[in-house]
Design a protein around this nucleic acid. Sequence first.
DNA 1: TTCCAGGAGAGAG
DNA 2: CTCTCTCATGGA
Length: 286
Amino acid sequence: MIEIRPISDFNLYHTLNCGQAFRWHEDNGWFYGVVGTSFLRICQKGESLFVESSDESDPIKLQQSLWYYFDLGRDLPRIFDLINKDHYMETSIEACRGMRIMNQDLWECLSSFILSQNSNIPRIKQMIRKISETFGNSVSLNGHVDYTFPTPEMITQSSVDQLAQCGLGYRASYLFNASIAVVEKELDLDWLKNQSYSVAKQELMSLKGIGDKVAACISLFSLGHGEALPIDVWVRKIAERLYLKRKASKRQILEFFHDYFGEHIGYAQQYLFHYARTIGFKELLD
DNA sequence: TTCCAGGAGAGAG
DNA sequence: CTCTCTCATGGA
């Protein structure tokens, strides 16, 4: 057990439940999840995080990796000051304060959002759990068992058919092809981490199954590009009904968010998205 | 039974 | 460039 403290402006619950990460589940006050090859459980008490890991051989490294994973060094109050421009955002920030955009593993994030298309969050979690159980390695902690997310190599050693049996539907071939692209170095993930948002997005979209929205999610949730704006049905509804009061194209929605919220579009979008999806603006209900 | 979900590809115009 | 149709799956 290690303790990380002090942490300020952090809320573990909202951070793990806002639709950016799909592998965590809560049980008896603890959040269980696999990060890399370690099975973790985490509990927040005020300004402390208590963490147990299946691998506590290097506590300092564990602490540092979680600090980065949850992006605990970022100045959230400054971001709130910049994006808090109306009562919609004020309401969202008040309800979800401490929700942070994470720095997730690039391959897992890329795969997860390929699977996310035209689906819903519970089923996305189910698909990811199934392929991890089927192709990943088991790790255990305190009697709980979970599985590492399969590497691209593990997936290329299976088949599109086996992936489809995990309930991926037509997305199975997308994930299989992406795995091949990474294994064959057609897409160099380490190189991608050092590129600008526009370059990264363009590279990601060269893969079949990754379009505008999924590329934005990957860039925002695992590459640190805070200017990325994923436009899904919720963000579209928020833009059209709460702000623009009319139908709008993706181009117009992006332009509005950029002009109105400035640099930290990713955070603005995530607070509105999470609040709208879990609590709800009454104005969204026609 | 139909509709919808953190969409994207292919084709038509 | 934009619009439309289709693509598996499972829960409501």
